[in-house]
């Protein structure tokens, strides 16, 4: 039994769903970051798979854009977390309740 593109697409979909559920369920900000990274990498895997299926190198080049953006996002996100939690004990999102939402 050969492993075709559908497997990769399925894996990507599962990873994306795991990431999305993780962002909604987990309460630690750092774990939420990791889940967002998981979602972005699921998209990358989908890009590469389709690029291979379509025989188009464009899809693989898109991955580089997404990687760079993900790195920039993490830099900013961790900066914000450090700025906020310098005065707090843990990185739990539930502790952030100054405002109503």
């Amino acid at each position: 039994m050969s492993i075709g593109p559908a497997w990769y697409l399925g894996l990507a979909a599962v990873l994306f769903a795991l990431g999305a559920i993780g962002v909604m369920v987990r309460r630690n900000v750092l774990v939420m970051f990791m889940c967002i990274e998981l979602m972005l990498n699921a998209a990358n895997l989908t890009f590469v798979t389709f690029s291979r299926v379509l025989g188009d190198v464009g899809g693989q080049s898109l991955v580089f854009f997404v990687l760079v953006v993900a790195a920039a996002e993490v830099v900013v996100g961790l900066g914000v977390v450090v700025a906020i939690f310098r005065r707090r004990a843990g990185t739990t999102a539930d502790d952030l309740h100054e405002m109503l939402g």
Binding site: V23, M39, L40, A43, T46, F47, F50, L54, G59, A93
Partner: peptide, 20 residues
């Protein structure tokens, strides 16, 4: 940041599916 990057990730996955 959390909700914005979550929505960005959803957006990228949407691009990937449209590309496919």
């Amino acid at each position: 940041f959390i909700l914005g990057s979550f929505s960005s990730a959803v957006f990228v996955y949407g691009i990937a599916l449209v590309y496919g």
